[in-house]
Each structure stands twice: as C-alpha cells, then as structure tokens.
Nucleic acid binder design. Sequence first.
DNA 1: ATTGACGCTTGATGCATGTCAACTTGAGTT
DNA 2: AACTCAAGTTGACATGCATCAAGCGTCAAT
Lengths: 225, 225
Amino acid sequence: MGLAAEDVERLDSIIKRSRPLHRGDHLFRGGERFRSLYVVKTGSVKTYAPSEEGGEQVLGFHLPGEIIGLDAIDKSCHACSAKVLETSAICEVPFQRFEELATSIPSLQHQMYRLLSKEIGQDADMLLLLGKKNAEERLAAFLSSMSSRLSKRGLSPTDFYLSMSRHEIGSYLGLAVETVSRLFTRFQEDGLLRVDRKHVEVLNLPALEMMAGSAPSSTHKQRSN
Amino acid sequence: MGLAAEDVERLDSIIKRSRPLHRGDHLFRGGERFRSLYVVKTGSVKTYAPSEEGGEQVLGFHLPGEIIGLDAIDKSCHACSAKVLETSAICEVPFQRFEELATSIPSLQHQMYRLLSKEIGQDADMLLLLGKKNAEERLAAFLSSMSSRLSKRGLSPTDFYLSMSRHEIGSYLGLAVETVSRLFTRFQEDGLLRVDRKHVEVLNLPALEMMAGSAPSSTHKQRSN
DNA sequence: ATTGACGCTTGATGCATGTCAACTTGAGTT
DNA sequence: AACTCAAGTTGACATGCATCAAGCGTCAAT
C-alpha cells in the first residue's frame, strides 16, 4: 500500500505474533490500559460494550485484515472488550512503537489517517442503518457486508460460516434474537439464502444488496424521517 | 494541548478564516473532493447524508471547537454534506498542508490520532444509543450531550438555544418528529425542562443524565438484547 | 444412550413508536 | 392587519418488532 520494501520490513519488525487464540479468549477488556492495536490474520473477533447486569452491546465483528482498538487511542484506555469468536490468529501492534515509526515514514502516517477515517465512515454507515432501516434491511445489510468483506480476502462471497450467534447478530443490529431468526427463515423461504445453522449460502446476492440499500421491500414505507 | 508556541504559530499560519457563513450555506456537499477539515469557531453545523428522493439522515451536529470532515480523509471525497444551521464562523484547515506539518511535529500527529480516535469512540456511543435505547433515553442523551458540550465551551449547561429543528433532531436520533415533540412536552410536564420553541432550560440535569445512561424509566424494560 | 445446557425456531400477544390528520403558533411579506 | 407558509404540537390509529412462552435440534459430558 505505497510503502517501500524497507519500510515494510521495519513495520514488520515491531509486530508481535502470538500463538493462536481460541473461542472466548479476550484480546482486551473494557477499562484496561491501551497498549496495542490488533490485526486479525485469520478467524474473527467481536468487540462489545459490557453493560451493567450482564447485558452486552455488540459493537462490531472483525474479520481477517481488519484492525481492532482504534477507539482506545484517545483515552489510552479501552472502552470496550474484544473477544475471539473462533480459533484465530491475531497480530499485536504496539502502538507507541508504531507511532514512532509512522513519524519517520510519511506514507505510513497517511495510511494510518486513512484507516482511522475509514472507520469513522463505516460507523456513519452503521448509524444510518440503525437510525433508518427496518429489521429486514438491517439483516440484508449485515449479510451483504459479510459477503463483500469475505470476498475482499479471497473467500467465497456466497458461501460462508457465521462465527457469531444469532443473539450476537441481533445485538449488533439492534434486534431481538427472535427477529433475526425469523428473518433468516423468511430470507430462505424467499429464495435469497440457504441456511443451515451457521452455514449461509447466498443464492441471490444482488437482491440482498438491493434490500440493504435502503429500499423497503414492502410497499409500505416506514421510518422515512 | 502540548504544542510549542512556535508550532502553534505554524499551525495557525495554514488555517484559513472565512467571512461568517449563514444559515443554509454549505461547507461541502456529498461527492465533492475532500480538501480541508473545518473547525467550528462559533455557531453550529449539521452533517447529513442526502438520500434519494429528498429525505436526509442527519449524521451529527457540530458545535464550537468541533471538527468536521474527518470521515472524508479515506476516500479523498466527501460522503456527506455539511450545512450551517445559524450564522457561524468556521475555520478551514487545508488537509494536505496540515499533514505535511504534522510530519514535522510529532505531538501534533499524536493529537490528530487522538482526535480521530475520539470520533470513533463517539460514534460507538451513538451506535449504542440507536441500537439499544428507547425514545426517551435518546432525547435525554441528546440533551445531556448538548449540555456538556456547551459547558465545555464556557456556555451555560442549563440554558441554551437549539439551532436545529425538531425534524433534524428526530432524524439524528432515529425518531419521528412527532415523537420528539411529545417527549419535549413530557419532559416539561415532568419538571425536567422548560421549553419554549428552540429555547431550552434544563431544570434537572442529573435526572436527564440518569435517564440517558441507559436506565429505562418505566418499570417495563425493553430492548434488553 | 442419557442427560443437561444452550442456541435456535416458531407462535401468540402487547407496546412503543411510526403514520396520518387536524390544529396552533410564530415569523416574514405585502 | 391580513395573508402565507413552515414548524411545531396534539390526538387517533396502525404496525413492526419486542416480549413471553414453549418446543426442538445439537453438542458435550457422563
């Protein structure tokens, strides 16, 4: 991404590779001091805000190639927790060293700005989703997003396993588990998907994307505020 | 904020100050090329995503001291539009120059990371709000936020004018105008506020903050997913 | 194989909030 | 003043989705 080979090497040298982590392991917990960013190599991770009395709000799912912890730079302290959803390989990037390195490599610094900015843009998309879209559009958007993110990594955009539970999907999308379950059933009935537990086959990706693109399916429009 | 006087001067020298802008003026529109960040000096600005057929989703309100345009760094192109809500003084910071400057001032670079990170953290708060909170909690959170942001700038935390319409508040909070209106009325009946058009007096700030802090008021709890 | 726990699905019901409609108010214009 | 128009308020009604409840498949441990 526009870095000299020598710089890539320098960057590589500060990255820590840990042994594979397993389902349920934490990368960090809310309240801990922020030291490193984490990059998913393989597997998947969820970030969530533990709320009082056991409830939790899922803030995001992180697939290979994606970065975790950007929100903690500001306060030098993690506001959320990150938990591994399946056996995963994660790289740790000590932030202070990274920052020193970025100072001497302008193009790295620029990439970092872009990365942070991209995250902000994605959050804005999510805001729009939660603010304006109905249940059906939300799940369609979620599946479209999974599809495109996986295909970016060379995986099938139409055949994949969801490492998160229905409950976690619901929390992420601001829906009840039951609603998510019903929608999976409906999407299958409508010939959009074939679903078996965590295994999803997308049969009609364009239709899903259309649905996600804020075009209510029923003739009845709601939340047009 | 940890910058040498000399560096502050250098930063100052790249900032453009424009004549005051007026209600309805645009800082930029979605699709335009990204060149500068904007800092609100006085007044207020809203950012919004124009959707097809005239509808718009309000993405944020920006008060004095706050920065606009961070989401556009990634694609070098604005994804949303920014419109001035009242007569305002706005500073323009050409981003390319800023970036060059940051390269030679490590502490400025660090501040920039913090700024971007902070934005991400705030978006996460908003995600939580839209995903989990009911109408009452949302408006309480909105008012608490306005209160604290204004007081940071030395303005009254309990007596202020809202420069945005009820419709815009509704769009921002994912609620219908009517719901917002009813809530203002209810808050007033409950002795939390005194409201007259755009003028708001907060009579019981702690109660508002309590309400916003994801504690459902009615005994009936909902959206505990 | 049995048990238990958990995640998922499905149906029935209720409520919060969206939608529709009518009215009021305030601000600007003539 | 009288008029106009947008913004806000309020009431009546409709509905999408949460909630409650029950049942079922799956998996791990015994």
